[in-house]
């Protein structure tokens, strides 16, 4: 898990600010037609304004809800499936070819099909996002389960605990750090897919729809402003999840650290 400390955060901020200043200066010096492509300062101002713009907020709430639901559905499917496949070798062997076939199919390529299947856009968006977000959680869970020490399981068995208890008390907590990493990756993937499906399918609400409408009105400032907000949201989600992992799985880090 990447550890963010004060010094590296400061350097990152300096780098970002530097780039923005250079772009702003280039725009003001006439490097491009700012009537077409707005200045950095204009875009940032619009992004700030969007946070209080009711029309944008309706779109944002729709995307956010869809994203959260997609992530929940992903976890509800992929974690139990991963636990099962990780613990039952024959099941994993039976399903492995199917996983290897389905996993490389880009979720975006399925959007036209999914549009035909659903008349309701929330279900459509959730389906597309879940399809893409499923894999990191599933694969991480399988590997996490496999990584659980056999002796840890045997210890509990020797005290007379049954397979269910061993799965719940040893396998699940032991695999949890891997599962959490999978969920963090899935969270980012789901953001991408929710917005992408909105861009492609259209509909009445969602940030992707908002961006499409801004584009049709030739409002590049609003398009880029909304896009920046999506990016910031992604960073925020990632940071929160990393912090959560660092806090919950101190034991895992301590162990990994001791092993090296």
């Amino acid at each position: 898990m990447p550890k963010v400390n004060g010094a590296s955060l400061l350097r990152g901020l300096i780098g970002t600010a530097g780039l923005l200043v250079v772009l702003e200066a280039a725009g003001r010096l006439g490097a491009w037609d700012t009537e077409r492509l707005p200045l950095v300062s204009t875009v940032l101002l619009r992004a700030g304004e969007l946070l209080t713009d009711p029309e944008f907020l309706v779109s944002a709430r729709s995307s956010l809800t869809t994203w959260a639901l997609a992530l929940l559905v992903t976890i509800a499917i992929a974690v139990p499936a991963g636990l099962l496949l990780g613990m039952v070798k024959p099941a994993e062997l039976a399903v492995r070819p199917l996983i290897e076939f389905l996993r490389p199919i880009p979720s975006v390529a399925l959007i036209p099909l999914v549009i035909l299947l659903y008349s309701e856009t929330t279900h459509m968006r959730i389906t597309v996002a879940v399809y893409a977000a499923l894999w990191p959680v599933l694969i991480n869970t399988i590997y996490g389960v496999r990584d659980v020490d056999p002796l840890a399981k045997e210890t509990l068995r020797s005290f007379g605990f049954g397979p269910g208890s061993v799965a719940y008390r040893v396998v699940l907590p032991g695999a949890a750090p891997f599962i959490a990493t999978g969920i963090r990756l899935a969270a980012s993937v789901a953001i991408v897919l929710v917005v992408t499906s909105e861009l492609i399918a259209g509909g009445i609400e969602g940030i992707g729809v908002y961006i499409t409408i801004a584009a049709s009105g030739n409002r590049l400032d609003l398009m880029i402003g909304a896009t920046i907000l999506v990016g910031l949201f992604g960073i925020l989600v990632n940071a929160v999840l990393v912090a959560g992992e660092n806090r919950l799985f101190r034991w895992h880090r301590a162990r990994a650290g001791a092993a090296t």
């Binding site: 002796l151 840890a152 210890t155 020797s158 005290f159 605990f161 032991g174 799985f249 895992h252």
Partner: peptide
């Protein structure tokens, strides 16, 4: 048959047999 009720095991490898969490 299976793991007996009144039995406990202490393994050599304590670091693997204790739960780090």
């Amino acid at each position: 048959d299976g793991s007996p009720e009144n039995l406990a095991v202490v393994f050599q490898d304590y670091s693997r047999s204790l739960y780090p969490w």
